[in-house]
Design a protein around this nucleic acid. Structure first.
Lengths: 233, 233
DNA sequence: AATGACATTATGTGCATACATAATAACATG
DNA sequence: CATGTTATTATGTATGCACATAATGTCATT
């Protein structure tokens, strides 16, 4: 029997994957250290390191200095959802994108919004409501508060020709954000705008983005009934 | 003015991130090549490569051979959701986990299920229904079909002491899967089990996992009203 | 002008080496 | 026996070098 060699990190990764899937290395098992694997595979330790690191990034391996590398006992599946500009999202589905501004006002936000955005009490934010359409049918309702202390240019934009969604992504940097997915019954108003009965179950995405310590914008996207977010594992 | 040096790949990454956030390098811009950056940062090209590769993995940079590296024009936010074992999920919320098997039968699945799992018509699958509890309150309803042609051992397991969710992750390898998030109105039955009115808006996760060309299991998790999936960007 | 050969360039990767760092085990000391 | 110190070990990473590979540009030939 000839032992095949695994020269590049991808084939090392594949071989490790094979052993995990074949249960030669079971969840929780400690696998040989990098030096030994490098010897076995006939490559440099660097190459093994690259392969194992990639697998650890994907959650399949747990690595700790000195403790060694073990197969993740709980292979936490990481579902990566791409949150793109809505226009792009619609167009990639092969549908015609449409956009309608519903409202644009400066106002003092509800306390819950103000608090989560860490705004001074009484400060005004820019409140935008808009409807995104796919093939002329309602796709998603956008309800957004923009921190005009941070995004000054927003006051000069009327958001008629471009959605706040797209305008912000194009013009405004942010450092990090929080996102939440939930289900919500349609209010009467939402039902009217989205063209569905009140109480319909709707998928909602809440997002809050920050530029360092300052909140940039908080947005709620309410999708039309039946909308799904899909991805592969 | 002294030009600081960036010795390790993390600080190189941070500096690149800073420039992107500060819009010194704007979306779509071509950034200097690795050799030049290495020179500027006072480190090896390998180190720059490591930093840029990591950023490209996160979708912030687009890299092509010869063409160079540019800031992603569509900073597609990638929301990574960790889909863990439900017991772990509950326990990490600091709540007491509970589990209740509702039903376990072998049956021919509805055509939609059979088709999506690519099962021979008429083949039986193992159908499991169970309720997961957090602090004795309903947390999520699991409705699962297991391909017993692939997961033979499942027939010997009664799923009284351990949920199919956890048992499968522990015992059954899979190569890939599909996952979908959606909102759904509670059926009368779901309302009864979850202790909420019918028509309540519920968050649902559908998952289908494969071991190479064979389907392993298809599961629908219906969460109690108000449940949110959260993550950071 | 179209075609194909070839050079150029930026990223991609492998390797040997060195040292850093975290976690653990072994040991010594009170 | 408890506790703090030290040695050991496996992973983490920086570096210089070499070569691979993909994409592009250049140039000669027809």
């Amino acid at each position: 029997m000839n032992t095949p060699t695994f020269r590049d990190w991808q084939s090392v990764q594949n071989e490790v994957l094979r052993r995990i899937h074949a249960r030669e290395w079971k969840p929780g098992d400690l696998i040989p250290n990098e030096t030994d694997l490098a010897l076995e595979f006939g490559c440099a330790r660097t190459t093994v390191n690259r392969a194992l690191r990639a697998l650890a990034d994907n959650g399949l391996l747990d690595r700790k200095r000195k403790a060694g590398t073990r197969v993740a006992s709980q292979p936490v599946a990481k579902a990566t959802l791409d949150i793109a500009v809505i226009r792009t999202e619609v167009e990639e589905r092969g549908q015609k994108y449409g956009y309608q501004l519903i409202g644009r006002v400066e106002a003092v936000p509800p306390v819950a919004i103000g608090a989560s955005m860490r705004i001074e009490a009484g400060d005004q934010l820019l409140h935008i409501r808009a409807l995104h359409l796919a093939d002329d049918a309602p796709y998603a309702l956008e309800d957004r508060w923009i921190n005009t202390n941070v995004v000054r240019d927003a006051l000069a934009e009327d958001f008629h020709g471009i959605s706040a969604n797209e305008w912000l992504l194009k013009t405004t940097p942010y450092t990090h954000g929080e996102i939440a997915f939930l289900a919500k019954a349609a209010t009467i108003d939402e039902g009217a705008v989205l063209g569905c009965p009140p109480q319909s179950a709707l998928l909602v995405i809440d997002r809050l983005t920050w530029d360092n310590a300052q909140s940039v914008t908080k947005v709620r996207l309410v999708f039309s009934p039946g909308h799904q977010l899909r991805t592969i594992l």
